[in-house]
Design a protein around this nucleic acid. Structure first.
Length: 423
RNA sequence: GGAGAGAUGGCAGAGCGGUCGAAUGCGGCGGUCUCGAAAACCGUUGUCCCGGGCAACCGGGACCGGGGGUUCGAAUCCCCCUCUCUCCGCCA
């Protein structure tokens, strides 16, 4: 969430920058500024009343000690009256705060200055690209057919046992999946990330902290009896490690990595382009998270971008990096780079990573702060990125490396798979 | 699942219902001493909100796991919840 102090002091900036996301927030911003003023007035009144009550209470204590019972009783009555006023004021204040909060939560993050205006993915900006597009032999197959032909993945068994979007990986398919996870984790460790293996279920506070709640609960699987949610990404448990934490400045940037299964209901997005591994309800992902000093967070973002690029490069997959335009940027992000990998048989660019700087948007909710060199406590910046999401990488690997001899495994993975091709 | 104990500042650990935001120790920071360091000694040391000030800071409010309640007044009393520990049972 945006900081109220920022909205209060820079309402025009908020309006202008959210226009890059095609949002007209003039009305809501004005309302927020007004309600904030009202809230502060109420708070002031309440504090003053409370101060008076505190003063009287102390006095009563002194009077009792010196045996002046009559005076004490008079003051007691006075205090009781004030207490009633104070309670009703406190109720109004709480209501006012709640309403204000609801409004603030409706505002998405402000896009970074470099974010291009635009309505949708068509206006995204391709900022880099690498690798030659493979030329496939005659009769090349899409990955879902390769998966069947080489008995690597069974979508049918997944449907039988669970439902659509929950595949079984089998034999060399399972081994390749595991190899990719290990490879990604090892690469992250080499780059200085500390590994975590997080819980796959989180509580409400955590889901709120990273922004899944209050609005996006429809995208998560919920375990209602225990009020827990299956994580849509390891970002949720890992970032929430630092909820309500004040870090010392010398710990920044924090670099964490976590592998986890991810669970997404994908409500409303089920349609075309979802064949095979393109879109799943459960999938594996290795996620990198950084917590950075506000002055250094864009250095962190570049570092993460370079890390992800190196992974795709080592896997010998052609890729491009896209800077999301305002309209395509997520609610919480200030700047996002998407990585797309070319999947040859489908002739499609598949999104395999999304690297974002959230600046203080998450940390404001999380109360994730650090003590700066001057001793001041301030909000840290949070960043995360997929490094990488497995299914589409698997799809591109299978499709791009197929030949009549079978499927070739990229060299970097061979130590992990124990085989260099799937014949 | 059953029985009991507990949750206090960065950590450890006190705290008769009334000058308690909280003793004390450790740690941290600043200083004295020293060529320097250690030791010793002195001082300082939480977060959030509101108001004032360019700022250092000053004044007020809130916070002793979370939420309610009793009371003029709650860290202290009562209720609910969460978590931790010990014992028993069950279990990968």
């Amino acid at each position: 969430m945006l900081q109220i102090s920022y909205i209060r002091e820079n309402p025009q900036d908020v309006i202008r920058r959210l226009a890059v996301k095609n949002l007209d927030v003039k009305g809501i911003v004005n309302q927020i500024v007004e309600m904030d003023q009202q809230r502060r007035t109420l708070q002031k009144q309440h504090d003053e009343l409370q101060a008076e009550i505190n003063r009287i209470s102390k006095e009563i204590g002194i009077l009792f000690k010196s045996g002046q019972k009559a005076e004490a009783t008079t003051l007691k009555e006075r205090s009781s009256e004030l207490k009633a006023d104070s309670r009703s004021l406190a109720d109004t204040l709480a209501a006012s705060e709640e309403e204000l909060n609801k409004l603030i939560l409706q505002l998405p993050n402000l896009p970074h200055h470099s974010v291009p205006a635009g309505k949708n993915a068509a206006q995204n900006e391709i900022v880099a690209g690498e690798g030659d597009l493979p030329v496939l032999e005659e009769g090349a197959l899409p990955h879902w057919e390769l998966a069947q032909k080489y008995d690597l993945i069974s979508f049918e068994l997944g449907s039988k046992v669970t439902g659509a979007g929950f595949p079984f990986y089998k034999g060399k398919g399972a081994r390749l999946e595991r190899a990719l996870i290990s490879f990604f984790l090892d690469e992250a460790a080499r780059a200085g990330y500390e590994e975590f293996l997080p819980p796959l279920l989180v509580n409400e506070d955590s889901a709120f902290g990273t922004g899944q709640l209050p609005d996006k609960d429809g995208q998560m699987y919920a375990v209602n009896t225990d009020n827990l949610f299956l994580i849509p990404t390891a970002e949720v448990p890992v970032t929430n490690l630092y909820r309500d934490v004040i870090l010392t400045h010398d710990r920044l940037p924090v670099r964490n990595v976590a592998y986890s299964s991810c669970f997404r209901r994908e409500a409303g997005s089920w349609g075309k382009d979802v064949r095979g591994l393109n879109r799943l309800h459960q999938f594996n992902k290795v996620e990198i998270v950084q917590i950075a000093h506000p002055d250094k967070s864009y250095e962190s973002l570049s570092e993460m971008r370079d890390h992800v690029a190196s992974l795709v490069r080592k896997l010998e997959l052609p890729f491009r990096i896209v800077r999301l335009c305002g309209g395509d940027l997520s609610f919480t992000s200030a700047l996002t780079y998407d990585f797309e990998v070319y999947s040859a048989a489908q002739d499609k660019w598949l999104e395999v990573s999304s690297v974002s700087n959230f600046e203080t948007f998450q940390s404001c909710r999380l109360k994730l702060r650090f003590r700066d060199t001057d001793g001041k406590v301030r909000l840290a910046h949070t960043l995360n990125g997929s490094a990488l999401a497995l299914p589409r990488i698997m799809a591109a690997l299978l499709e791009n490396n197929q030949s009549h001899q079978g499927i070739r495994i990229p060299g970097v993975l061979v130590p992990y798979t124990g085989f260099n091709s799937i014949p």
